[in-house]
Simulated assay, not measured.
Amino acid sequence: MIDKNSPIPVYYQLKEDIKKKIANGVWKVGQCIDSERELSESYGVSRMTIRQALGELVQEGILIREKGKGTFVCEPKVKQKDMMSFSNIISKLGGNLNTEVLGFEIIDTPEDMQEIFPFEKLYRIDRMRIVDGENIANEIVYIPCDYCGYIDEDLLKGSLFEILEGFGYTIDYSQSSIKAVVMDDYYKKLFKVDKNVPLLNIYSKTITKNGKILFVEESIYRSDKFLLEVDISTREGKFR
Rank of each mutant, 00 (worst) to 15 (best):
P110E: 10
E36H: 12
E115R: 12
G68D: 03
N201I: 10
N5Q: 09
P7V: 10
C148E: 01
F161G: 01
K225E: 04
T234Q: 11
I62P: 09
G55N: 07
I2E: 10
K67D: 03
E218C: 15
L214Q: 00
K20M: 11
E56Q: 11
E236N: 10
L63W: 09
R124I: 05
N201P: 04
P9K: 14
L54C: 04
L227W: 04
N196Q: 15
L200H: 11
L97Q: 03
V45S: 09
K212P: 00
V141D: 09
G44M: 04
E165Q: 11
K205D: 11
D112V: 10
P9H: 07
C32E: 13
E36G: 03
Y203F: 14
G55L: 02
S91C: 02
M84C: 07
E134W: 06
L14A: 01
T208L: 01
I220W: 14
D154T: 14
K179C: 09
Y187W: 15
I50H: 10
E36M: 06
I171L: 15
N196F: 13
N98A: 02
R235L: 12
G44F: 06
I213F: 03
L93N: 06
E111G: 00
T208V: 00
D34P: 01
G68S: 02
V26R: 15
E217W: 11
E165W: 05
S85R: 08
I136Q: 04
G68L: 07
